[in-house]
Design a protein around this nucleic acid. Structure first.
Length: 424
RNA sequence: CGGGGAGUAGCUCAGUCUGGUAGAGUGUCUGCUUUGGGAGCAGAAAGUCGCAGGUUCGAGUCCUGUCUCCCCGACCA
């Protein structure tokens, strides 16, 4: 992608409404634009990031046998009346009446819809367990949206739902999702802290939040320092959950040897048994021909929130520092003197794009300083400057966004350079 | 919903107290210069001052109403 084709307009100053760094940087780098309170347009750069995160989440869900599907954003109120949540959910739920005066709502979550759907499609215990998910926009009419996409009203969420024959197997499923979530957040370059959670409006008896440590996080955290010093992927569910962690009002103030911090909740998993299968009459026949109500769980990841959380984790005074696999562009080619190196840049753009997918070339007629500043602001992992060093001795200057290290390579060396070996 | 603040150019803001032709910086556009860290000079375009009423010869400014946005608290991915 050439910058001349990109809808992009960097801001030197932060719009005044942005209070936290991720919101400021997302506005300054043309990732998002606010449409109205808590509702945003995702501009090309932001949308690329969102898709990249979504794909990492998707990959990990598919890996555990979860079926991707797509449920509607608008739902009918009748299922919610059956589950009892039409009244329980309160003003957070955006309610809409259609022209026939039927009561509709913009889905804040999908337990009702998926349970109803599942009961139509699976009638035998042989169809269990089943995992289903979608990545869809949700709407919750937050009392006070804030911090940009961190707490928007409209947000993109991956929500998965599991159906198991009994409590025991539902708990096994819960553990599978638990481990998969750790892997997902680690793949996103983050250090997740699983925290035992209150179950809130979703209900249930077993629930964990996945928190990312950040000064600007909305939750207060207290946790065993061992949780962040060890590779959680090598530990069992039991080992991990035996380590202390708690958030907000669940924190035991008398406990010592804990780290106190703040976190951003990027995932939340629930096991809630038959809370929805019973009222919605979702059942299968067991091996004795008797009705059994599946034990369910739901598993959410805040995809749009993750864009902000990752920026909170990876930035410096010059801008964002995207992890390689999340960055909107992996490499940014910059030319200095106008015109003279365009052909070299275009060829390189073509070759690197074939290899890495999203690569950009800043072909704007602007000074070098401005282009470098924009590259740093956007947070592109690598920049390749084709300038003085190229004209003098055919060297390309490769700069690492994270540590600022520069190397000078020939064109063929650049082609074999391991750009993917980058940490933010 | 309670408490606080703000709506004036794409962005950051001045002007409002004390009514009298709509301002600055930055960004944008044009030309020349420049070309390794948001560069310089000259010129230009750009706002029905959130909206609706009212007072007045005259309202960005005063009065009334209204909408929106932001911040602090209680809910949530």
């Amino acid at each position: 992608m050439k910058f001349s084709n990109l809808l992009f307009n960097s801001l030197k100053e932060s719009p005044k409404e942005a209070k936290i760094v991720s919101h400021q940087l997302m506005l300054r780098s043309s990732m998002i634009r606010q449409h109205t309170s808590g509702i945003y347009t995702w501009l090309p750069l932001g949308f690329k990031v969102l898709k990249n995160i979504e794909n990492i989440v998707r990959y990990n869900q598919n890996k555990i046998g979860c079926n991707e599907m797509m449920m509607s954003t608008i739902q009918s109120s009748d299922l919610w009346k059956k589950s009892g949540r039409y009244s329980d959910y309160g003003k957070e739920m955006l309610r809409i009446n259609d022209r026939h005066d039927n009561e509709l709502l913009y889905g804040p979550t999908n337990e009702e819809v998926i349970t109803d759907l599942f009961s139509d499609y699976v009638n035998s215990y042989k169809g269990l367990p089943k995992y289903l998910y979608h990545i869809q926009w949700k709407f919750r009419d937050e009392i006070r949206p804030r911090f940009g996409v961190m707490r928007g009203r409209e947000f993109l969420m991956k929500d998965a739902y599991s159906f198991d024959l009994d409590h025991e197997s539902a708990v096994e499923t819960y553990k599978i999702f638990f481990k998969s979530y750790l892997q997902t957040f680690i793949d996103l370059g983050l250090q997740p802290i699983p925290v035992k959670a209150a179950t809130g409006a979703i209900g249930g008896d077993l629930s964990h939040e996945f928190q990312i440590i950040a000064k600007t996080g909305e939750s207060e955290l207290a946790y065993d320092p061992e949780l962040v010093s060890q590779n959680l992927l090598n530990k069992s569910y039991e080992e991990i959950t035996s380590m202390y962690s708690a958030s907000d009002e669940m924190i035991d103030k008398n406990r010592s040897n804990v780290v106190i911090g703040r976190g951003i909740e990027v995932g939340h998993i629930f096991n809630f048994g038959t809370k929805y299968s019973l009222p919605l009459e979702c059942y299968v026949l067991n091996n004795e021909g008797k009705k059994v109500f599946p034990h369910m769980g739901s598993y959410g990841v805040g995809v749009s929130r993750l864009t902000a959380a990752i920026i909170e984790a990876f930035h410096d005074e010059n801008g964002i520092k995207w992890p390689f696999n999340i960055s909107p562009f992996k490499i940014n080619i910059i030319t200095s003197t106008h015109g003279s190196n365009n052909e070299v840049a275009e060829k390189l753009l073509e070759k690197l794009t074939l290899k890495y997918g999203n690569v950009s070339y800043d072909d704007r007629d602007l000074g070098m300083g401005r282009k470098i500043k924009d590259s740093e602001l956007i947070g592109i992992p690598w920049s390749i400057i084709i300038g003085k060093n190229y004209e003098e001795n055919k060297q390309l200057e490769i700069t690492n966004r994270s540590n600022g290290e520069k190397s000078f390579l020939t064109e063929s060396e650049v082609e074999s350079f391991k750009f993917e070996q980058y940490t933010p």
